[in-house]
Nucleic acid binder design. Structure first.
Length: 217
DNA sequence: GAACGACTGTCCTAATCGGT
DNA sequence: ACCGATTAGGACAGTCGTTC
């Protein structure tokens, strides 16, 4: 048994349940028992019971935030997956429901961030009248914008290619293959500080290479 | 000049608190 | 019970001083 599970076991034994800091409601006690059955015996029926108890409420909470039924179903499912995976870290001094709803809220917000939905100020003119429909700008670039973007990318590649070979390598790994500093250090057998320092110098060099003469200083 | 590592800053997730 | 606001903590990126 993990130490986290042990901690929960110790905290949810009879004395802890009977004498918590705040008197637990009957629902909270029922939830604790189910949680304990999952942790101690990997009881799938307890898992299913907890899920059926909160499925509808979690879905409704998520739906309120993400405003899309399909996405709400996905996020609600993710909430249960995340919750049961993190169950050993759950602290029984708080209601299981509070903890679960907190996870649901956070995952819903994270979902919105992933969607990168543009935000609209409540002070925006469209709220002055009765029409509360949103008029989002079309994110698709125009042909001119696409061409400018392409030229920028070509300039960037040319600048990277003019760097010393060892710098090219870590720039390639970090910015094009999106490896973290730690992954680069591991792959290239370099100390982490070296990777950070080299990328720091690379950025300075690239800035010089990409800044036109007349724009400097 | 380059390598290194300590320190600092930023972002994200989870936890907590207080109000309704 | 629910929800918004705030806080804590961890992970990661970035900066800078020291050493070679």
């Amino acid at each position: 048994m993990s130490s986290a599970t042990s901690t929960l076991s110790a905290a949810t034994d009879a004395s802890a349940i009977l004498a918590p800091t705040k008197p637990a409601s009957s629902k909270a006690q029922r939830d604790l028992v189910l949680v304990q059955r999952i942790l101690d015996h990997h009881d799938e029926r307890a898992y299913a019971e907890l899920m059926s108890l909160y499925q509808k409420a979690i879905y409704q909470l998520v739906l309120k935030i993400v405003h899309q039924s399909d996405a709400a179903q996905d996020v609600a499912l993710e909430v249960f997956v995340r919750a049961f995976r993190s169950l050993p870290t759950y602290k029984p001094e708080f209601a299981f429901s509070t903890w679960l709803f907190r996870i649901a809220t956070n995952l819903s917000i994270a979902h919105l961030h992933r969607q990168r939905l543009p935000t609209v100020s409540l002070d925006a003119p469209q709220f002055a009248g009765e029409d509360t429909s949103f008029d989002y700008p079309d994110p698709t670039p125009t042909p001119q914008e696409a061409l400018i973007q392409l030229q920028r990318i070509e300039r960037m590649h040319a600048a990277v290619n003019s760097l010393p070979a060892k710098y090219q390598r870590i720039v390639q790994l970090h910015y094009f293959e999106e490896l973290s500093y730690e992954e680069i250090a591991e792959r290239e057998h370099l100390p982490l500080g070296t990777v950070k320092g080299q990328l720091h110098r690379c950025r300075g060099l690239l800035q010089q290479l990409l800044t036109p003469e007349q724009d400097r200083f």
